[in-house]
């Protein structure tokens, strides 16, 4: 690790540094991932730009319309313990609280998590099931994108160089919606998931399923939205859930690794998607 360290106090300063050093610069949020990648030699930036001193990137609060804004530099632990986040969705605070250990959650940030784009992380599937958008700034202006468009491959995002994630915006949740986050951990409690499932679901007045979003983690190069399962459920009674769940096997793309074979993960994805649906249709 040989680099110059910069600690800008404003977003404008950080963006100027990113432009000045170009591809030789790397952002550091909490540092849990960046420090490890640099120590392993997988990342060798000439300039590290730390975002920790930029106040405008912090904070977690309700938005006026009943949604939630999470600043990019909010730690996982801050989300886990936020009264506003819990009031918005206990499944959201559950998902953040299920990450690794309290030490990691005290250091790792929401924006850093999203930029790292490890497909086995807990927050992205839950944020995706809650229909989050991600706000991004560069020296040329700002944009926001649906969280589903952020991760494009293992550890790869659609962000251009010079862009910084500033916040995550969660829209208001329709009344009557239920949410859950389930994480299958056959090894140790602080591990990454073998399969994780985030689900939201709302019934129509007649008892059929009006809307559902189901997003799986750790079973593909990015979080994967189970669109075929969702389509098979919309407008249907809950009795259709058992058949619909089988469709998840063909929507995911798991790999063999130390957390299980691809075939095993495919089967576990079916089982845990069924369990998630059982939770949100109870």
């Amino acid at each position: 690790m040989t680099f110059d360290y910069h600690e800008p106090r404003t977003l404008a300063e950080a963006l100027a540094l990113l432009d000045r050093y170009g591809e030789d610069a790397h952002l550091m949020a909490g540092g849990t991932a960046t420090v490890l990648l640099m120590r392993q030699g997988l990342l060798r930036p000439g300039h590290v730009i730390a975002l920790r001193a930029i106040d405008e990137l912090g904070g977690i609060a309700h938005t006026p319309d009943g949604g939630l804004r999470i600043g990019a530099m909010a730690t996982h632990r801050a989300v886990e313990r936020s009264a506003d986040a819990f009031a918005y969705s206990p499944a959201l605070t559950d998902a953040f609280g299920s990450v690794a250990t309290v030490r990691i959650r005290n250091q790792a940030t929401v924006g850093g998590n999203l930029a790292h784009a490890d497909p086995a992380q807990d927050p992205p599937p839950m944020l995706s099931a809650l229909n989050a958008t991600v706000s991004v700034r560069s020296s040329r202006g700002g944009r926001s994108l649906p969280i589903e468009e952020l991760a494009v491959d293992h550890f790869t995002t659609s962000l251009a160089h010079g862009e910084i994630i500033t916040e995550v915006i969660l829209p208001p949740i329709e009344p009557g919606t239920r949410e859950t986050y389930l994480k299958f951990l056959p090894r140790t409690a602080d591990d990454y998931a073998t399969v994780s499932v985030a689900a939201t679901l709302r019934f129509a007045p007649g008892g059929t399923i009006a809307e559902t979003r189901i997003v799986l983690g750790a079973v593909g190069p990015t979080p994967i939205r189970a669109r075929r399962v969702e389509d098979a459920l919309r407008g249907q009674p809950v009795s259709r859930a058992r058949d619909a769940v089988d469709l998840v096997r063909d929507e995911i793309d798991p790999i063999d690794d130390l957390r299980g074979s691809a075939a095993y993960k495919r089967e576990m994805a079916r089982i845990w998607t069924g369990r998630a649906l059982a939770q949100v249709t109870r």
Binding site: R103, N106, Q107
Partner: peptide, 26 residues
Amino acid sequence: GVGVCGACSVLVDGELLSACLLPAVF
């Protein structure tokens, strides 16, 4: 050395952190 085992646990402003993952400038 990778933030998993907890041997390097320290308190920073009272918060529990892994000293092996924390840049000293922080």
